[in-house]
Design a binder for these strands. Structure first.
Lengths: 337, 337
DNA sequence: AGTGATAGAGAAAACGTTTTACATGCCCGA
DNA sequence: TCGGGCATGTAAAACGTTTTCTCTATCACT
């Protein structure tokens, strides 16, 4: 039998209103003496307010919904930790949802969230969301932060990394090391990240007066195994290239393996760069040169932002939040002979 | 303005009860005609029942609390995915909590869960839980499945892997390859997993008539960097050994690096085995020989079990569920000369 | 003494469901 | 014709909070 606010009230000899005031630290309406008496009773009885009943009247659950494609991609645990940590610090908890890049799965989770009146949502890689679902979110006025998603609505708050700039930077770096034939290994073709990175690739090619060669572009859906076969196919084309840019580190590992199979030495014969800087990258052989996305910080920032939205502190918030990448130079890129 | 069950009722020209019966698929009490009419109205208006109000009366939230030490350890995303997938399949969602092996943090999360009336909880690595907290969980009758935790209560349901057997198996394997001096790199010293694995190590030593040497035992808290320094210290002792068993794969990577620093070749000069078989293990150089824990399956099993508890289907459930490990033989162990 | 302000407290409504108990109408068998 | 049972439906209570409104006592000021 759970103990309720009514029990506390009668044990303390006050009304439930008073107990409620004490619990919620309302500054006025209760004397110091009463306040202490109520606290004592609460603690003696290990009373925990029923968050559901509370939520029913306040219409908020102190839960943040986190929707991402796949927690198994090593970029996301880091990101999630950033969210979890800051949510906890603000007395929120997070509900973890995997959408798997499947619109109907995402919808199921989004529905769950609205039905449960989550206080806010962090929506990562919202690439496949349907207009209808989006419309619905808007109508329900869900406080949402989009991360690494295409800008679907200029009212929405978006958090990004500057993919464009990041790729240009690495292209120039490769160029400075003598590379001219540079392949591009994309993730999911139409995803926001792949698309913007590809644009950066084209732009850099242009700036560097390197002709674009469609044959050097392949896609690996952000997963290691697919990347491995994509690189095999790339090699089979017999189009020479001295470096390859991979849209995430997992795919870089796939590339490593494809090159190893054919006895192509990294970085002596081929240079490889990745994207993300997952934890393992610095422990690969050779240590992977990659573009660091500040995953944890993005999580933090996302959570802070969504909490600010929830709590109505909107002054300083920008619609477009861009975090910096950093080129982590390690051992997988060599000067070209 | 959110639309409620009352609106639907009046739009459909029936009572609230009838609408409720339709939503919840109660077989009786409403004619086929009415049922269809109500559904139509519901869909036309995109009505979503308020899960909080529902929870208030049903006292359940369709949320499963997942408490684990650190989502950043690559074992857990896999595990979490197993939970998420099966939870979703049963119309539950999961709330992700990181305890960080800190009793007070864990308590905060557990409190959140009870206040929100989560339907059940999966508690992984409950090594640091205080008696008081445990008592409280028991009193609130939380449906809990403990995973990889010491058996704290023979009423509780526990899911494990047979650590004992796993380590014995790998010890015998190393023995068969000629190893006699085998070091042990533990995780957190008093944790359930480390303790049981250490027992297995001792047992195997005994069976194989190898004298135990305390100097060959070090601890790395399950984290790569600490493992690296632990192995450095181990090497500094100048006590010869030809193989090392690491209590997880991350620490095996730390060991790899410590050996690399000193130009000790794996597996020619030293054999290394890990535990977990995280995704990256097969992509390391050399590919890591390790004991596979079926992380995803454990997640699945945990979720299935807790859902069975929630829904009162307790017949077939064993108090102690043990899943099999598998020795993944790859390239990091060599015959000793 | 009278007035108003203020601090402390409580009663009751509201939140949106599910569930229990009851009502109505109809059919069927005796 | 009556009564029993079933199908369909409704009214109202209950869930445990927060919040609004109201009341009372006290105090300060004229």
């Amino acid at each position: 039998m759970k103990i309720t606010i009514t029990d506390i009230a009668s044990l303390a000899g006050v009304s439930i209103t008073t107990v409620s005031r004490v619990i919620n630290n309302k500054s006025k309406g209760v004397s110091e003496t009463t306040r202490q008496k109520v606290w004592r009773v609460i603690e003696e009885n290990n009373y925990q307010p029923n968050a559901i009943a509370r939520g029913l009247v306040t219409k908020s659950s102190k839960i943040i919904g986190l929707l991402l494609p796949d927690i198994t991609n090593p970029y996301y645990p880091q990101f999630s930790k950033g969210i979890e940590d800051t949510a906890t610090r603000h007395n929120y908890n997070v509900i973890l949802c995997e959408g798997g890049n499947d619109p109907s799965k995402e919808k199921v989770h989004l529905d769950f969230m609205t039905e449960h009146y989550v206080s806010g949502v962090v929506y990562s890689n919202a690439d496949v969301i349907s207009d209808e679902t989006l419309e619905q979110m808007k109508k329900k006025e869900m406080k949402t932060v989009f991360v690494d998603s295409k800008i679907i609505d200029d009212q929405a708050i978006n958090i990004h990394v500057d993919n464009h700039k990041a790729i240009e930077e690495v292209m120039h770096y490769l160029y400075s090391r003598g590379h001219r034939k540079i392949a591009f290994l994309g993730g999911i073709k139409d995803s926001y990240s792949t698309a913007t990175r590809f644009e950066g690739y084209l732009k850099a090619l242009d700036d560097l007066f390197i002709p674009f060669d469609q044959r050097l572009v392949v896609y690996g859906d952000f997963v290691l195994e697919k990347a491995r076969v994509a690189v095999r196919q790339l090699l089979d084309k017999q189009v020479p290239f001295s470096a390859i840019i991979c849209c995430n580190d997992m795919m870089a590992v796939g590339a490593y393996e494809a090159f190893n199979e054919r006895q192509i030495k990294i970085p002596e014969q081929i240079s490889v760069v990745g994207f993300d800087d997952i934890y393992m990258s610095k422990h690969l052989t050779p240590r992977l040169t990659t573009i660091k996305q500040p995953a944890y910080e993005m999580g933090q920032k996302s959570a802070e932002t969504v909490i600010a939205m929830i709590e109505g502190r909107l002054e300083g918030i920008k619609k477009n939040i861009i975090l910096d990448t950093e080129l982590m130079i390690r051992d997988s890129v060599a000067d070209i002979q």
